[in-house]
């Protein structure tokens, strides 16, 4: 039976690609694959986040664990994450998670000595590794069109005169399944690509007014009227939310079968948004890699296969083979 394969050859078409946003079509595969990719992006693509905080001085209004929690939630640039080790299986530091293979150290030292309230932000975190730093929101602000100078990093705590915050933090590699702070995903969604079949003959029995009325019944703008031919056309298939409103409307108008709408079972439109820890496109590539590793881990071991071979022969013998 060697050489037999039931493999599929999926196709990809990227529609829009920004650092933190990606929209693409995935075709010629099934929902299980699309959903596996979505689930892996949300919960199993690794990133780096602060996981251990040692507070030296904290005279701020927030308690130690509150600050530690806020530090954990700060997104850190994680292009290194795929190549890093998890602290729990790092040999170099016996799993205490303090070596360069599995961790990044941060220091924060801020004291307020003026009458003005002082903001302690992610900019005050000093990293031991220049490739792992708090995500620079200002960088996105520029492309977003608002003033970058107003972006001062992510607020951790505010200090008044005489208050001080001094700490050491260890960031580690992790996955969203462990804690959501490690998830690189802001959102990952996919929808089935819809397919519309308008019964043109039946449609032409409608007056222009009725056509308008029918189009209006859709809560999203999926259809419109061609101004020249006065024909109903699909203007935005993806705006359709599978709400069935136009189908019900057609029935109510006494025109059942005016339109038929199917979900193509092998076509998916993905929207991927990143928190900024890794690029959205990298998230997809890492998800594919992680899924491959997961599959590899569930391969049968040789001893299991051999044990079964013996059993098989014995079984055949018993069955009189």
């Amino acid at each position: 039976m060697e050489g037999v394969s039931y493999q599929r050859f999926p196709k990809v078409k990227i529609r829009e690609m920004k650092d933190d946003y990606l929209k693409f079509d995935l075709r010629e595969t099934d929902a299980s694959m699309a959903n596996a990719l979505r689930r892996v992006m949300l919960a199993e693509v690794p990133t780096i986040a602060i996981d251990l905080v040692e507070i030296e001085v904290n005279s701020s209004v927030l308690n130690d664990e509150f600050i530690a929690h806020r530090l954990g939630l700060i997104p850190l640039t994680s292009d290194r994450a795929m190549g890093m080790r998890f602290s729990r299986d790092c040999d170099a530091c016996d799993g205490d998670g303090q070596c360069e293979y599995c961790s990044v150290e941060f220091h924060l030292k801020v004291r307020c000595d003026s009458d003005q309230t002082l903001d302690v932000t992610s900019h005050d975190l000093k990293s031991s590794d220049p490739s792992v730093v708090p995500v620079d929101v200002a960088q996105y602000a520029e492309s977003g069109g608002y003033d970058a100078s107003e972006q001062r990093g992510i607020l951790i705590v505010k200090l008044r005169r005489g208050q001080e915050l001094r700490l050491r933090a260890i960031a580690r590699k992790g996955i969203g399944k462990d804690h959501a702070k490690w998830s690189p995903a802001a959102t990952v969604t996919f929808m089935y690509e819809p397919e519309f079949h308008i019964n043109e003959d039946l449609m032409e029995t409608l007056t222009l007014e009725e056509k308008r009325d029918w189009i209006e019944s859709s809560p999203t703008r999926v259809f419109d009227i061609d101004p020249n031919t006065h024909q109903v056309v699909v203007v935005d298939p993806e705006a359709y939310t599978y709400d069935d409103e136009v189908i019900k409307k057609a029935e109510a108008m006494g025109k059942p079968g005016l339109v038929e709408i199917y979900a193509k079972e092998d076509s998916f439109i993905f929207t991927v948004e990143s928190t900024g820890t890794i690029k959205a496109s990298q998230m997809v590539i890492n998800a594919i890699e992680v899924l491959k590793q997961k599959l590899d881990a569930v391969r049968l071991s040789e001893e299991t296969e051999e044990a079964d071979d013996q059993f098989g022969e014995l079984g055949a013998h018993i069955r009189g083979g």
């Binding site: 394969s5 493999q7 050859f9 990809v12 595969t29 594919i288 491959k292 599959l295």
Partner: peptide, 12 residues
């Protein structure tokens, strides 16, 4: 599945 993912990675 492994080959499908290899193909998908290249296509992407």
């Amino acid at each position: 599945l492994d080959r499908e993912l290899n193909h998908l990675k290249n296509a992407f």
